[in-house]
Design a protein around this nucleic acid. Structure first.
Length: 289
DNA sequence: AGGGGTACCTGCGGGC
DNA sequence: TGCCCGCAGGTACCCC
């Protein structure tokens, strides 16, 4: 579920709230979500450490601790970090956060708690001296919201990956870090580019437009604190919904009218992911099967 | 080399 | 009502 804007939202909120706190005790119930280390090592290395910074790289959240060590979260499809955690979140109401999916509990020296809750358990937790030890991070491509991500740098990525379909390319974390299925669909629709087009078919102008729309949808989504498409999905650290859903133009709108031209939105699978597009606005005039 | 299939998981909504 | 199926914001791996 969580893409760059959702992860950035969590980073911003945690930065406001937990920097300076010291971890007093850690409890966990899902050791499979802990990567390459034992629960004993994890808890013993964390207890007594102080949080000095929070950062984000791609879809990873990095908690910087002193004495130096990094606690890293990947939220998978349904992971959420809740702070401050209160029992009301665990009430069994529909759409509420369910107690049985609380897998990690971090207790702080001020008696507050942070919980990592994850329904599908695709999330991952790491504890490393340096984030480069995490392959998924070491191989990440360019951050789309930094100054170095220019239209020309984007066009260069297209040229050196010309045989990939454009949607596969922009969702490839090794090339651009942070776009997932929702924002890839939305950026392509806004740029009038068919998701099946080969990267080689994009003109420089196409690349400029798509670059602009990628930045636009990501920035807008961060402003609106991410997307919550359905119940039981992304929540911010206080358990509240993101509001980008109201800006979604094409994602999950198969069979509905295009908001620009009234034609029906179609869907095709690309690398196993549902890809929504308007066959009129996003003409695939340069198409290799 | 790109991309299909599969695996990892639980939960929801639609069709019958 | 209940059951079965497909689908879900992610990623890693095997295979052709």
């Amino acid at each position: 579920m969580p893409e760059l804007p959702e992860v950035e939202t969590v980073k911003i909120e945690l930065t406001d709230k937990i920097i300076g706190l010291e971890i007093s005790k850690v409890a966990l119930t899902r050791t499979k979500m802990l990567i390459n280390i034992t629960p004993e090592y994890f808890t013993s290395r964390l207890e007594g450490k102080r949080i000095i910074d929070i950062s984000r790289r791609g879809k990873y959240i990095i908690v910087h601790l002193l004495p130096k060590i990094r606690l890293v979260f990947h939220l998978g499809m349904t992971g959420i970090l809740i702070y401050p955690y209160m029992e009301k979140f665990a009430k069994n109401n529909s759409g509420d956060i369910k107690l049985k999916h609380n897998h990690f509990i971090f207790n702080f020296n001020d008696s507050t708690q942070m919980v990592f809750n994850d329904v599908r358990r695709f999330g991952k937790v790491y504890l490393v001296n340096d984030v480069s030890e995490i392959k998924g991070i070491a191989h990440l491509g360019m951050e789309p919201l930094v100054d170095e991500f220019t239209p020309d740098s984007f066009f260069n990525i297209l040229k050196s990956n010309s045989k990939k379909r454009i949607k596969s390319l922009i969702m490839n974390q090794k090339l651009i870090a942070g776009l997932g299925n929702i924002y890839a669909n939305e950026a392509l629709y806004r740029a009038n580019i068919h998701p099946m087009r080969m990267a080689s078919s994009l003109t420089h102008n196409d690349a400029v437009t798509l670059h602009e729309q990628i930045k636009h949808v990501l920035n807008k989504a961060i402003q609106l604190k991410g997307s919550t498409i359905s119940d039981g999905a992304f929540r911010n650290t206080e358990g509240k919904n993101g509001k980008f859903k109201q800006e979604i133009l094409v994602y999950a709108r198969k069979g509905k009218k295009c908001l620009k031209c009234q034609h029906l939105i179609e869907m095709v699978k690309i690398e196993g992911r549902s890809s929504f597009y308007c066959p009129v606005c996003q003409k695939n005039n340069v198409f290799h099967q």
